[in-house]
Write a protein that binds this DNA or RNA. Sequence first.
DNA 1: TTGTAGGCGTTATCAG
DNA 2: CTGATAACGCCTACAA
Lengths: 340, 340
Amino acid sequence: MQKRVIVPKLDDVARVAGVSTATVSRCLNTPDRVAKTTLDKVMKTVEELGYTPHFGARVMAAKRSSTIGAIIPTMENAIFARGLQAFQEELHKRGYTLLVSSSAYQPEIEKEQIRTLVARGADALLLIGYDRDPEIYEYLRKRNVPAIVAWAYVPDNDLPSIGFDNRNAMCRLAQKVIELGHKDIAVISGVIEGNDRAYSRLEGIKDAVRQNGLDVDRLKVVETDYGIENGERALEQILTGSTRPTVVMCGNDVLAVGALRHAQNAGLRVPDELSITGFDDIELAGIVTPALTTVHVPHREMGSKAATELANLVEGITGSGSVELETKLQLRGSLGSPVR
Amino acid sequence: MQKRVIVPKLDDVARVAGVSTATVSRCLNTPDRVAKTTLDKVMKTVEELGYTPHFGARVMAAKRSSTIGAIIPTMENAIFARGLQAFQEELHKRGYTLLVSSSAYQPEIEKEQIRTLVARGADALLLIGYDRDPEIYEYLRKRNVPAIVAWAYVPDNDLPSIGFDNRNAMCRLAQKVIELGHKDIAVISGVIEGNDRAYSRLEGIKDAVRQNGLDVDRLKVVETDYGIENGERALEQILTGSTRPTVVMCGNDVLAVGALRHAQNAGLRVPDELSITGFDDIELAGIVTPALTTVHVPHREMGSKAATELANLVEGITGSGSVELETKLQLRGSLGSPVR
DNA sequence: TTGTAGGCGTTATCAG
DNA sequence: CTGATAACGCCTACAA
């Protein structure tokens, strides 16, 4: 005996409630335009039957999905978690559902994910950073899919951006580092290819170095994928060099934590023998010992502003355009003056 | 002048390639059943036109979406990140897309998310833990949506589960703690209502306490939401009590890190004056100083096994049923013998 | 305020 | 191997 599965549909609700399918549809989508008594009756049978509208059908008929997609480089560490949470909360308030997927920092995968999300009917997209194949921007324009860029502020980009000036923020931190007396600076940077945040942050450091009359060529830069272990390895590599730096500036907190761990395993006192800085101010930064000096980024604010902006774009409300958010130096124990 | 957006559809591809829509569809879905020359021709125009199939339409016609949904309690901390990443990688291999949403540990939201994912045509669902409104299980059965439970092992549940025995694992850890000589044990537990993992872990501690002839009633238990700050506050509360425990066992690593932080801020030496244990062995556990003694959970294995099982269920391959995975005590610096 | 009916883009069945 | 054509479940003018 086969047990057939019966999923109630609009017709069923209509029949049971004794109205037309159009009315049921209206009850669900534009309750205002339905007589209160009808509405009650219909909603009750919807409840009774456990009816849920079929998403695919709805998208096809309505040509919008009330869905917004986000492609983030990774879910593995906390860099994007906070912002995304706020993003999702705000979207929920506006009646949108969030679809998240991760690209593992690989441009090809990102491209694929974008297509997938668009195919699924995403009404708009949230992207991280702006450095990507121009083809993608063209694709989005052609399909008329609104999108914005977060985690970076680029006023003159194809897309509006909501974020902060990575270069300037890192420059200010480097400035501070130099003020403290550091001259031998090493950098552990994220992979720059395809990652504008990593690039800008490195440039920010160079800016500060130049402004202070130091030699950019003396900067030791190691480029590596994000990850605690990569941070460890990178510092290990740096320490094998002939002159030991007095400070290591890292492209983000995850790398910095790795560097910190390696320094401690190598028996270096932080910050006396080696100072370490990060970027992002994720929760981790305040937890390690010594706590990490880093750049604080307003994750939640960024997330919710992005959500508002995207929802507005979808609904045809004129967006407020790009928004630059403030970052703040977060000075903590991992940065000190060099001890000679 | 209005710029009309033209999204190529199957018809367009068919027309340009000079074949029927059916053939184009076949090229995309079952390339084997198409003459190679036709296939090449079609794929080329697909490429040229930048055609992407419309997901909603596809779902409606095919009655399956090759999509699997996962509802996790939170994205904010790393507890689920690893496992989910593995889950997604395995699904990808099998040709499925993952849809993630988070319930913020709220049963009502979880219920809503489940309905949403089902409405979107998810072919199957991954749920965390088994303690939820039975109505949900009935709903899934009615709609014939395969689902499994992860992060817990419960052989006799409605759904197959892939996970570990939280109770036994925590019991073993508590056993170890007691062996080291601890008698005054405090517990910082996650909120138990609606969270079977939290419940089982607490019970596991009680088991060990009883087995060793200690008094369960002497156990100080504080229940709190997950979160580092909550862990801090919980320990603060515990320390105001008349007798200070020699060890605090926490429901997970996040709480434990919070407790650790508070202990350090309060000037307590860990583990000499106070030992601390966690659960999950997230990356964070190995990073704090001292490193956290905790229970190692095979996140990635759990994720990929869950993916395999779910994909099998969707494809009608007989599932291998519930799978119990092994956990392992991860002894590190935060646990020591009580110093009197 | 409510009902009727056409169409949204694909897949799958069934002939050819 | 390929081509018509009927669903799929819902929304939305248009009409009443």
